[in-house]
Design a protein around this nucleic acid. Structure first.
Lengths: 362, 362
DNA sequence: CCCGTGTCGGGAACCGTTCCCACACACGGT
DNA sequence: ACCGTGTGTGGGAACGGTTCCCGACACGGG
């Protein structure tokens, strides 16, 4: 019993071998090394042999073994992507942008879903990333804690963050604080004073970005002399979260704000849906502004600060590649500019304040 | 010029080498092979040596090189996942389910985003998948055409499909037709007769699933003797798509249906939002039922046939693993049952038909 | 006392590439 | 005629593991 079970694996190995470079070489009548040179674009090879080898390879349907190539070259031709969520608009878009860009460069993408709560997250940092199955890493909205960040840099591969803090790694992101400030200023310019901020709970994972956006809102309010009116309403950073939070806020007639800055479009849209349900007219009784320009933003006529997550993903790929090419390239921060898209979820403060506060329902 | 540029790669290779198994062996005072056996759980190794080797490995922070292991064993410990979209609820959920399950098995996941329209899709099938960087493949809602399917099987690795047709591969999915039939029957049982189906354009990619669901709706209608009332309204299979389609349908007062079967919850929710905007009360003037039990379903009180995409993802992983273990395992079809979740987007047909048709607005 | 049998360990082959190096040859300049 | 120099090619050693095969040793039974 407990035999060293050699044969099984050996046979599998054998039949999985389809055709190696040596067969290509034989068929082309050259040596392995010449064949390798001919297929790669490096080194001296006569046009004639190159041609012959190429034909032989094509005829045999030769595809180089990635593991062998990686072993020999030290490059995996693969980029790792770590993100905490997949089913949120922003993350999915960034991922698609990354994927697109990698595809153009002939690189593969292996995905690590490091959900904050899960115990899987620890395993990813401790075991999975340490395997270094990639040449470089892109961390999207990861917000790693101290220990995690340590692990990350210990990998010794280029890292680019999308969203988050860029002190230890190269970063691509919009200026969160600026975006929220501009959103708030838009409402201020429309005459609003009772402006609330709808955003994530401070203890939640999305915390860092949210905090920055909250900061932008806060300073805009203070600059307008409305420091006393600052109001931060906790909300899950999801559409239902925005809905639930807005239902609470709008239910209280006396304290109801006339305008809301949402931390992102999902929350903003949730708020709009809540307002409609409660019969609060948007924008006449309530102005709502978000950040993102979400897929659904147009459908809800949402005024928002548009960012382009796909482009951020693409930029991240370019940066990883740059670091790969020049290992001594210093960290950098690439800021993408959010642009205001004015639709009709925001409007000047209704002249008759009480009318706005009154329930519009019959 | 055009030097054989050897040194660059060589130096990179050298410094990337951190600590190999031979160093572990040396430190533990054993040979490479013994170290390998001790770390793997195979073969005869005394508990003492195993212990010593383990300690040495831990001290050196030894992590085996995936490429070397793959090369030697023929296994990549990696599963490929191909899907056409990432930013739709169903796909993201399946992906998370897959990821979770793979994590438990110590497997990596490389992602291929084969967007139907894109020219990248062809490259994925021709180049990327052919590289076989994975032991098995999971195709989610791929709906490959003939040529693509050919490529897929030519890879010679186990393939499991989630959603789609399961003739050539193992499949896990719900019974689409049955789900749509039950959704329709639910409305029929409530007394509705003017029931429309809101689904994808037949020329679109989601076509196969949509067609099956349409088929379920159709046969339920026919069985109820309402074959003449069958009405298929084309809609993009997205929330805004459902919204736009519903706006059209509901605009026509005379032809307005009293109930709608949506091909999925996103479309259903779009329809509900449209109805609300147009002042059509749900469910009193319009019943809406979907399929999915989307993240937002509860918030919209949507009655739906719940499926569990995460579980489907997990099941797909189990199946790939089973195929990996037994290469001669025959294809199979794993059907997951959709369960009806009744909320309040459906209600009995209002007794006064004209009242329902009248615009509820003041 | 000798010989299996059960444990343990080491040498070496192998996985499929890349790359370094040696070598062969043609060519033009001296 | 001779020697670079520029091309083209082949041999073989890495790369970092796993696994096969064989030898060594201890132990107990015949």
């Amino acid at each position: 019993m407990l035999s060293p079970n050699g044969r099984t694996v050996a046979s599998e190995r054998t039949d999985s071998t389809v055709s190696g470079i040596s067969e290509v070489a034989r068929r082309a009548g050259v040596s392995k090394s010449t064949a390798s040179r001919a297929l790669g674009s490096t080194g001296y090879v006569s046009d004639d042999t190159r041609e012959r080898v190429a034909r032989a390879a094509a005829e045999l349907g030769y595809v180089p073994s990635t593991s062998a190539v990686s072993l020999a070259t030290g490059r995996t031709k693969n980029i790792g992507v770590v993100m905490p969520y997949l089913n949120r608009w922003f993350f999915a878009e960034v991922l698609e942008g990354i994927q697109e860009a990698l595809l153009e460069h002939g690189l593969d993408l292996t995905l690590y879903d490091a959900n904050p709560g899960s115990e899987g997250r620890a395993r990813i940092f401790d075991d999975y990333l340490a395997r270094k199955r990639f040449d470089g890493l892109i961390a999207v909205g990861l917000e790693p804690d101290h220990r995690e960040l340590e692990r990350l840099v210990a990998i010794g591969r280029p890292i680019v963050s999308v969203v988050g803090s860029g002190e230890t790694t190269t970063l691509v992101a919009i200026d969160e604080e600026d975006a929220a400030r501009r959103a708030t200023e838009h409402l201020l310019a429309l005459g609003h004073e009772r402006i609330a901020f709808l955003g994530g709970r401070p203890d939640q994972h999305w915390a860092q970005v949210d905090r920055r956006r909250l900061g932008g809102y806060t300073s805009a309010m203070e600059d307008a002399g409305l420091g006393a009116g600052i109001r931060h309403i906790h909300s899950d950073v999801t559409l239902p979260g925005g809905y639930a939070a807005a239902v609470n806020v709008l239910g209280d007639l006396r304290e109801r704000p006339t305008a809301v800055v949402a931390t992102c479009d999902e929350v903003a849209i949730g708020a709009i849906i809540a307002a409609r349900r409660l019969g609060v007219q948007v924008p006449s009784a309530l102005s709502v502004i978000g950040i993102d320009d979400h897929e659904y933003a147009e459908m809800f006529s949402l005024t928002t600060l548009k960012q382009d997550p796909r482009a951020q993903g693409r930029a991240a790929v370019d940066l990883v590649l740059a670091h790969l090419q020049d290992p001594h390239r210093p960290h950098s921060i690439v800021r993408q500019r959010a642009t205001m898209v004015v639709r009709s979820s925001t409007a000047p403060l209704a002249p008759d304040r009480s009318a706005a506060v009154t329930d519009a329902r019959a």
